[in-house]
Design a binder for these strands. Sequence first.
DNA 1: CCCGTCCTGAAAATATCTTTCAGGTATGAG
DNA 2: CTCATACCTGAAAGATATTTTCAGGACGGG
Lengths: 311, 311
Amino acid sequence: MSETVKESSRAPGAGPEAPPAPAALAAKVRTLAPSMTRSMQRVAEAVAGDPAGCAALTVTGLAELTGTSEATVVRTSRLLGYPGYRDLRLALAGLAAHQQSGRAPAVTADIAVDDPIADVVAKLAHDEQQTLADTAAGLDTVQLGAAVAALASARRVEIYGVGASALVGMDLAQKLLRIGLFAHAHSDAHLAVTNAVLLRSGDVAVAITHSGSTGDTIEPLRVAFEHGATTIAITGRPGGPVAQYADHVLTTSTARESELRPAAMSSRTSQLLVVDCLFVGVAQRTYDTAGPALSASYEALAHRHDPRTAR
Amino acid sequence: MSETVKESSRAPGAGPEAPPAPAALAAKVRTLAPSMTRSMQRVAEAVAGDPAGCAALTVTGLAELTGTSEATVVRTSRLLGYPGYRDLRLALAGLAAHQQSGRAPAVTADIAVDDPIADVVAKLAHDEQQTLADTAAGLDTVQLGAAVAALASARRVEIYGVGASALVGMDLAQKLLRIGLFAHAHSDAHLAVTNAVLLRSGDVAVAITHSGSTGDTIEPLRVAFEHGATTIAITGRPGGPVAQYADHVLTTSTARESELRPAAMSSRTSQLLVVDCLFVGVAQRTYDTAGPALSASYEALAHRHDPRTAR
DNA sequence: CCCGTCCTGAAAATATCTTTCAGGTATGAG
DNA sequence: CTCATACCTGAAAGATATTTTCAGGACGGG
């Protein structure tokens, strides 16, 4: 990696490759902000803050407004997934028109220590709804489709994730097991690596990490990758280290976080949506076996419920 | 008027002079068509017929598409009221986005086996958003407040749930542990009961069951209840058997389910919202200790991430 | 058939966007 | 504390896209 890397029109820096992205711009800015340099953040902020205004500006204008250079503006555009500033500008114009028609409510006040409980409920619900919308808008359906295809034909599926992401991994494993796939979720880093060593072509490994840089999760994915397994990463930082070893990267969205609203909350919501999409996608593809399997597992569980009132 | 009139960037030819024109483009094309020359009409037609497609083209591209020249394209843009093609193109992008958003609301349908993956994403996201809204609206804030109070002052918290609800329980346990409470989630029915026997007044037991009639979850809650612990039930059926042994019942909402959209999906979303509300509520009440604890756990985790790219 | 008017597109001129490159700054090692 | 390294940054060169100019030619009227 020592050779000079030119800033060409291909390879948008960090993001694996996002399509022209429709309207999830604010979300994407938040998602990618951590991997941005200071001046790029200024540009991104201006763009997210006033899409309509920025759409009216030329590269030079936006560079002056943000006190940076044209080069930085172009670089930021690339990072956000567009071929260049021209295309970002078009997207901005679209977004502006969209916002104007949509009348965004934008009542996302932060949660305060003395908020009454009813406000907490409303704010959390609103936040998570927002997260879902952002995630859905930002999901690359091509990557998703590819991931589904890989899972549907996998000999076995191994899922890696620690902390909060471990629960998401278990959720995915539970779901896939229900439709007859051989899936297992690991949350112990050591066991995960020893497991990953056994994988080979035809197996699928899934890594779930919000930060994209969780060593304990990346390591087994790397091993799986190097042993020829198809690898999928579900992460909030598509430019993070985890993407290096992922054949398919599924991007989750991040909401603004705060002390009383840890990132784990919205990232989990986002991750679960992605997991659900994977599950439904796989179930569609394997409907012949998945349908009966789902019915069967439902039947099996019915006996575990109190027959007196369980319908 | 006999002197030569240059085609300058001022004086938009025929159109009286319209401002940047919002979205009534098709109408304007019709209105101005009579005063257009043949080749201009071809351009205008293309633009009105496929705004999105034309927005993707450069002047040269559109000229070729319509079999005319760049000059004609620019002239047409002027006639339509824009300073030049660049601005027409931006307006076109906005128009395209606007149109697209208009035909969005048709996502209420059920998920079909042959739905394209993009539809699956949209439908799932929409569903879960709906579930969140329903849950927030249906949550009894009095019960919630009481449950928060009980948790905040609990000596220990034991959480029972099996299957998908087990994951929700673990999520709650993880969160409570982070703010210094002693919480533990159980998913093994036998161990849960043996654990429940040890509870007494001052302890809190939480049962999570969507159906409200899951024997394996109800049993430990009953035992805890009978031993004097404060009991909380998170269930989709507040009238179900589990409510019998619950001091506080928190109701989750359920979306319509179908074969490809198992109830587990929306019930999980709903349960997690309730769990988040409990967590934030408790964190508020115990902010003096919860705040530092959250910061500390955040710090501790920072070291587990690769420092090279995690900014 | 000839003439004037005006449409039309090729090409020059300009504006805008993209890339390159060298200087500067922060960061970690010694 | 100093040095080396990697990386961010913007100025300016280079490439594209847009706008303007200009002359050929079609069309209609005389």
